[in-house]
């Protein structure tokens, strides 16, 4: 039965597992760097707003412009655009190492926007109350603003991670590596439709698992 309908999956099964592992690694590394950077930018965006704790119009505008520029570049073009930079930074522009740089740069603007929204949902009254207690702005950012936004931040991280999986397939296609490039090389170029199908199933399952784990985590800390 399996032999009949999924001959190629059987034959290239090991390669497929390796490719999947590569995707996991790409998403984890790019995710960790991207989430961290995105969160920092989001915090800066929020606190430099007009009504923010450290309002600074110039900084806010500059940051916003840069984010908007990067957000408007389609990812495939971004990968091409970044080839030299990636090579300079990582020593190569292909494989997992080559994919991570454009993935990070592709996802950071997205994460910072989502995280910004989550931070803006924190009631400004809470921050005002903290100021009225004589608490410093710095302490407010780290001990009140970010912790209060946690459920929203987790949800934004989940959405970003799922987008990253998408980016990883594209980055992989250009540079080689990961489940996306595997599906293109075998499923698409060599007409092995069973490989394409199984890849889709794996991706759908991964996305759903991440989403439901994330929801559970967010719900657990929502009071």
């Amino acid at each position: 039965m399996i032999e009949r309908f999924f001959p190629n999956v059987l034959e290239y099964g090991n390669d497929m597992i390796i490719a999947f592992k590569e995707t996991v690694i790409m998403v984890l590394i790019a995710g960790a760097i991207g989430l961290f950077t995105g969160l920092i930018l989001a915090v800066i965006l929020v606190i430099t707003r007009d009504d923010g704790l450290y309002h600074n119009n110039a900084l806010h505008r500059i940051l916003e412009t840069i984010i908007n520029i990067f957000r408007s570049i389609p990812f495939v073009i971004l990968v091409a655009l970044l080839v030299s930079f990636t090579r300079f930074l990582m020593g190569t522009s292909i494989g997992i190492r080559g994919a991570i740089v454009p993935m990070v740069i592709g996802i950071v603007p997205f994460i910072s926007r989502l995280a910004e929204q989550a931070l803006l949902e924190v009631d400004s009254g809470v921050i005002e109350a903290a100021r009225a207690m004589g608490i410093s702005k710095r302490y407010i950012v780290f001990h009140i603003l970010i912790p209060e936004a946690r459920p929203g931040l987790i949800r934004s991280f989940i959405t970003s991670t799922i987008s990253l999986i998408g980016l990883s397939t594209m980055a992989g296609t250009v540079g080689g590596g990961g489940i996306g490039s595997f599906a293109v090389r075998y499923g698409y170029s060599r007409y092995m439709n069973d490989i394409t199908l199984v890849t889709v199933v794996i991706l759908v399952l991964s996305v759903n698992i991440i989403q439901s784990l994330g929801n559970r985590a967010a719900n657990k800390i929502t009071h």
């Binding site: 009631d123 009254g125 912790p147 009071h223």
Partner: peptide, 9 residues
């Protein structure tokens, strides 16, 4: 305050 302004978390 009117709306209490407690930390939800």
């Amino acid at each position: 305050f009117q709306h209490f302004n407690l930390l939800r978390s």
